[in-house]
Write a protein that binds this DNA or RNA. Structure first.
Length: 418
RNA sequence: CGGGGUGUAGCGCAGCUUGGUAGCGCGGCUGGUUUGGGACCAGUAGGUCGUAGGUUCGAAUCCUAUCACCCCGACCA
């Protein structure tokens, strides 16, 4: 991609409402813009990072036999009334009527819709277990959206659902998701932990949360030395104590703040019972299916990753999240045809090597280009100016360790590949 | 919903107390000089002062209502 075709929207100042570093940097780096409270437009750079995360998740879920579908975001109230949540779910559920005066809501989660889907198409244990996921926008009318996309009203979430003939099957699938999630967050190079959790509004009987450890996290975690533990809600129940300090004193655990990026639940038969999702089992008996559900907050991961990966220059992406493999910073290409030609050559040979490159062909000064790409967080910076065009080389600069070296195109390609 | 705060150019802000010509920095555009780390000079565009009503000869400024946004709290995959 060339910047002339791939607009970047960096800016120096940041609106005073952006409190946390990830929110500030996402605005400065031109990843998001606010539409209204808790609602954000994703600009090209930001969307690219979302796609990276999505693909890591897709790969890991496909690996455990989970297949992608896509469900409508506007859901009829009938299903929610059937499950009982139309009355339970409070004002977080955004409700409205269509032209026929029929009640609908914007989907905050999809247990009802998928249970309806499966009960219509699955009738035998022979069709189970079954694992489906989707990646889509969810809407929750949060009391107080904050911290940019960290707690937004509209956000992108991966939600997966599993269906089983028995508790044992659910149990073993639950463990599969747990390990798949562990792989996903490891691959994204996030510093995270898994804690015991409360199943909240979703229902069910067992649940784990995946938290990115960060000062700006909204959740309180109580962890042992190996960073295993539970969230505060569970700790209060378990130790019959409402004060964090007292729990720490009694148990020797440490208190950390976490950003909840994943949550897995064993739903059991809660929804299959209320919504009559039945199958015939091996013994020719009609039973309610067992279900699990498994969420990952994709847009929240973007913010969480930035909370963990930033410095005075801006964002410093871990490799799997980095929006481009490298940037070509051209000096005076608009004035010197030789420089322009050499840049094009380097760009084309990198494309041939399957590298995802952004070529900054703007007519702005070197310093501006550096500042922009260091802010956006690319680690591999390729400089091409007069010297390089004469020598038929490039100068490679590494954002993290500040090294700078003139080298051949072949060497540079190998370095960028890492 | 309770408490607090803010709405003035794309962004950051001043002006409001004490009513009288709409300002500054950054950013944008044009021209020139620059150019290996956010350059400089000159010029220029851009504002129903959130909205509606009221007081007044006159309102960004005072009064009332309303909307939006932010912070603290309660709530929450």
């Amino acid at each position: 991609m060339k910047v002339s075709n791939f607009p970047i929207f960096t800016q120096k100042d940041v609106p005073s409402e952006a409190e946390v570093i990830s929110h500030q940097l996402m605005i400065k780096a031109g990843m998001i813009r606010k539409l209204s409270s808790g609602q954000y437009t994703w600009l090209p750079i930001g969307l690219k990072i979302i796609k990276k995360i999505e693909n890591v998740i897709r790969k890991a879920l496909n690996h455990i036999g989970c297949v992608e579908i896509l469900m409508p975001s506007v859901q009829p109230s009938e299903l929610w009334k059937e499950s009982g949540r139309w009355d339970q779910y409070g004002p977080e559920l955004l409700r409205f009527k269509d032209r026929h005066d029929r009640d609908f809501c914007l989907g905050p989660t999809f247990e009802e819709v998928i249970t309806d889907l499966i009960r219509k198409d699955v009738s035998s244990y022979k069709q189970l277990p079954l694992n489906l996921f989707q990646i889509s926008s969810k809407f929750r009318d949060e009391i107080r959206p904050r911290f940019g996309v960290m707690r937004a009203r509209e956000f992108i979430m991966k939600d997966a659902y599993s269906f089983h003939e028995s508790q044992e099957s659910l149990d073993s699938t639950y463990e599969l998701y747990k390990s798949a999630y562990t792989n996903i967050f490891q691959e994204l190079m996030l510093d995270f932990t898994i804690v015991d959790a409360d199943s909240g509004n979703i229902g069910g009987n067992e649940s784990n949360e995946f938290h990115v450890i960060a000062e700006t996290g909204e959740d309180d975690l109580l962890l042992d030395n190996n960073l295993n533990g539970m969230n505060f809600e569970i700790a209060k129940l378990k130790y019959k104590e409402n004060d964090i300090q007292s729990i720490i004193k009694d148990t020797g655990m440490v208190h950390k703040k976490g950003i909840e990026v994943g949550h897995i639940f064993k739903l059991g038969q809660k929804y299959s019972e209320s919504m009559k999702a039945k199958i015939t089992n091996k013994d020719s008996k009609i039973i309610n299916m067992f279900m699990g559900c498994y969420g990952i907050g994709i847009t929240r991961i973007v913010a969480a990753a930035i909370e963990q990966n930033n410095d005075e220059k801006g964002i410093s992406w871990p490799k799997p999240l980095c929006p481009f493999d490298a940037v070509i910073i051209e000096i005076d290409g608009d004035k010197n045809i030789e420089i322009r030609k050499h840049s094009e050559d380097v760009y084309n040979s990198m494309l041939k090597n399957q590298l995802d490159i952004i070529y900054d062909d703007r007519k702005v000064s070197l310093g501006n280009k550096f500042k922009d790409w260091e802010l956006i967080g690319l680690n591999n910076i390729i400089i091409i100016g007069k010297n390089e065009s004469i020598n038929k080389t490039v100068t490679y600069k590494n954002r993290k360790n500040e090294t700078k070296e003139e080298m051949s195109i072949e060497n540079m390609v190998n370095v960028v590949r890492g």
